[in-house]
Amino acid sequence: MRTLVKFFLRYYYFLLFLTFEIFSIFLVIENNNYQKTLFLNSANFFSGNIYKGIANLTSYINLKQTNEELSAENTRLNNILKNSYKTNEISLLEIYDSTYFQQYTTTAAQVINNSVNRQNNYLTIDKGEKQGISPEMAVISPKGIVGIVTNVSNNFASVISILNTNMRISAMIKKNGCFGSLVWDGKNYRETILKDIPNHVKINIGDTIITSGYSSIFPKGKLIGVISDFKQKKGGNFYLITVKLSTNFKKLSYVYVIGNFLKQEQKDLEKISEND
């Protein structure tokens, strides 16, 4: 017994170090799975509010550019409003049309915390459960897609960015509809990799990449970026395509959160098919 106590006294520093180190690494592994809800993230009340304060200050710096972006988008939206079209018909008959109903909702939000330099990047936005945000909603910016909501608190939400090595998004080439999965290799914040496009498909530099809409999170046809480079792996059947993102993640300030009313229905149906 005495030797044991002696041993502990002698090596207490190393044992203390081991205890804390193992506990820290346990925390890392435990939270590595990004879907796990945890309290200690940037969406909690305390750090969320601090980040909101910081964002309020720093948003002034980007105000000019943000205004330009928003007004450009307003112009585009105004142009497709019904009011801006003149009708050639003489009389209009109003018909209750049950063919169309709303599938997607959009909420505007401000980015209050953001990073591009880590391997697994997250954003925090200033809308949360009270504003109707829930996990697995899509987040896009006027220029292209941004990420997916992971955790929500009352007034904030954290968003897993597409600049995250854990993230996979179903993407397609606009001109021929071939789809593959979009992953980030953790190197350049302006580029991601598109995989699983077979060799026989003809592609060119400059082709547009959009979301495929297969995943029930992103609506179909949202812009991701353009092909900036591609090569064929020796002996492989697939291209390795580098996609230049249309969103500049360093300059994000306002984003839209998109919810899908039919997501549950699609998921339930797919679950039944999986069980067969």
Binding site: F17, F20, E21, S24, I25, F26, L27, V28, I29, E30, N31, L38, L40, N41, S42, S47, I50, Y51, S115, R118, N120, Y122, S158
Partner: peptide, 17 residues
């Protein structure tokens, strides 16, 4: 630092080391 940057455990492990 971890709590503010969504990296729970990483900075803690490095600092303890």
């Amino acid at each position: 630092i971890d709590i503010f940057s969504n990296t729970l455990g990483m900075h803690a492990a490095a600092c303890v080391f």
